[in-house]
């Protein structure tokens, strides 16, 4: 925290968790190696005694697209609210863009666009007037460029045609887009998007994903909370998994998925014989399902395993290793399905 060196944000998302420091000509008080978001033992206990977030140590690297994953009720939103200065932590510390939150909220938040727990709009105002109002609440927003910036934000989320309609007539997907537009009223250094594709149709989801990629390639760090694993897998460079208020893991997506080994899948009309040979070859946890035999791949060369199958007279139609998905990794980590925490 007290170092004065800093790094340039990476142009392209890097799978490394902490970007190496590069000397920059002008020293600055913010240590970017801490990440855009850095929390230490962040804890929130609500007045009822419920522990919502328990000793969270989160580091979001600069320039990453950071997936924040967890079942409903795992403390994701409470964490986001603490990061945005809406909730005071019970203990621990949070720094956003190098500054302590919520103390430095006024300096930090103009650089942060946020979509928290879905959009919230004034139903009796038009979409455009909703954005004008949110922009008027931003102390650093220039009133002279307000209308232009609002129009640009509406255009970016594809709402230009519906800008004059009252927000209460908007569909859920349109409201979601307007919420995103509010987060994009200014150039931001950090975007916090809580379930951004909620309520969108597949086409809308694709658009949001490409928007997130586009923003990330401009150097904006995107903090994306979601319970959709494939969404995180598709756009995120880094991921953190929460369950029951605790951080289970965090790191680059590739590493996390690699941590869980894939499964060997043999497609054959002779599954019984194939299973026997595979067990001989050291394949663990062999499961037969119709014409497919799956199992944990052994340490040895898989070409030899295949040769052994053929030598034993097993007719092999397919022989592949299915890469572990993030979902497999998640189940392996939490040891459970994707249920609502109690």
């Amino acid at each position: 925290m007290d170092e004065s060196s800093a790094t340039e944000p990476e142009r392209a998302p890097d799978p490394e968790p902490a970007p190496g420091p590069e000397p920059t000509p002008d020293p600055e008080p913010v240590d970017a190696r801490d990440g855009v978001i850095a929390t230490r033992a962040l804890t929130k206990r609500y007045r009822g005694g419920q522990l919502a977030v328990d000793g969270l140590d989160l580091t979001v690297p600069t320039g990453s697209v950071f997936g924040f994953l967890g079942p409903n009720g795992s403390g994701k939103t409470t964490t986001i609210r603490m990061l945005m200065g809406l909730i005071e932590p019970t203990s621990g510390a949070a720094r956003v863009l190098g500054h302590p939150m919520p103390r430095a909220a006024r300096a930090v938040l103009p650089h942060v666009g946020a979509l928290i727990e879905g959009p919230a709009l004034y139903g009796f105002l038009s979409g455009r007037d909703n954005l004008l109002r949110y922009d008027a609440a931003d102390p650093v927003a220039d009133p002279r460029t307000r209308r232009t910036r609002v129009a640009a934000a509406l255009d970016r989320v594809g709402l230009t045609a519906a800008a004059g309609k009252k927000a209460k007539a908007y569909s859920l997907g349109m409201k979601q887009r307007l919420g995103l537009a509010a987060a994009l009223l200014q150039p931001r250094r950090l975007l916090v998007l809580d379930e951004p594709t909620n309520g969108l149709d597949p086409q809308g989801m694709r658009e949001i994903r490409s928007l997130v990629r586009e923003l990330a390639s401009d150097g904006t760090t995107v903090f994306l909370s979601s319970h959709l694993l494939d969404e995180i897998e598709q756009v995120c460079t880094h991921v953190a998994v929460m369950a029951q208020g605790r951080l289970i893991t965090q790191g680059p997506v590739a590493e996390l998925a690699a941590g869980t080994r894939g499964r060997l899948v043999v497609t054959t009309p002779d599954p019984g014989e194939a299973a026997r040979v595979l067990k001989e070859q050291g394949v663990g946890d062999v499961v037969i399902a119709e014409d497919q035999v799956t199992g944990e791949p052994p340490e040895r060369d898989l070409a030899e395993v295949n040769a052994a199958l053929v030598a034993a007279g097993v007719r092999v139609r397919g022989f592949t290793v299915e890469r572990a998905s993030l979902e497999d990794a998640f189940v392996a980590l939490t040891g459970e399905g994707f249920d609502v925490a109690g």
């Binding site: 800093a6 600055e28 500054h99 300096a107 650089h111 250094r189 401009d218």
Partner: peptide
């Protein structure tokens, strides 16, 4: 003073955000 440095510190090609106008 720390806060005032922020707009440039992560500058990613975007222009620094202007200072809040006292009239906002």
């Amino acid at each position: 003073s720390r806060a005032d440095v922020v707009p440039q510190s992560y500058a990613t090609g975007e222009q620094a955000l202007r200072k809040p106008s006292p009239l906002w």
